[in-house]
Amino acid sequence: MANSAPRARRTERSTVQRWAAFSSDPAGGNPAGVVLHADGMTEDEMLHVAAEVGFSETAFVTRGDQDGLSIRYFSPLAEVPFCGHASVATAAALAEVRGAGGYFFATPVGQVEIAVADADGGRIVRFTSVDPFVEGLPADTRTRILSVLHLDPADLDPAYAPALAYAGNRHPLLVVRSRAALDRMAFDPAAARALMDAEGWPATIIVAWPEAPDRWHVRNVFPVGKISEDPATGAGAAALGGYLRETRAVTPPQRIRIFQGSHVGRPSELTVDIPATGGIVVSGSAVRLPDPATPA
Rank of each mutant, 00 (worst) to 15 (best):
V224D: 04
V116M: 09
T128H: 01
G278K: 08
L240I: 15
L94G: 02
A191G: 05
K226F: 11
P162F: 01
D214T: 06
N30S: 08
E246M: 09
L47Q: 15
A186D: 13
A115V: 12
V221I: 14
D183L: 10
R9F: 15
D65Y: 06
N3I: 02
I227P: 05
A238T: 10
A180K: 13
D155K: 00
A139T: 11
D273G: 04
P108H: 07
A181C: 13
Y103N: 03
R126H: 11
A198N: 09
D214I: 05
K226T: 10
H37W: 12
L77T: 14
W216R: 01
D155Y: 00
G102D: 15
F60C: 02
I114G: 07
A208S: 14
E246N: 15
R63F: 04
P252T: 06
P210G: 10
L182R: 04
A95Q: 08
T294Q: 13
A115R: 11
R215N: 11
L164M: 12
R193H: 11
D183I: 05
L240G: 01
A194G: 07
P267E: 05
A165H: 09
L156N: 06
G29R: 08
A119I: 08
R123L: 15
T277Y: 10
I258W: 02
A92P: 07
G40V: 05
I258A: 05
A106K: 10
Q17A: 13
A167Q: 04
A296Q: 12
H263E: 15
F22L: 00
E12N: 10
A32H: 00
L270I: 11
P6F: 03
I227F: 00
T107H: 06
F133T: 08
R170T: 12
C83A: 14
A59N: 01
L77K: 14
T204S: 14
I256N: 05
I206L: 15
E135I: 02
I256Q: 05
A249E: 08
P292D: 14
D131P: 02
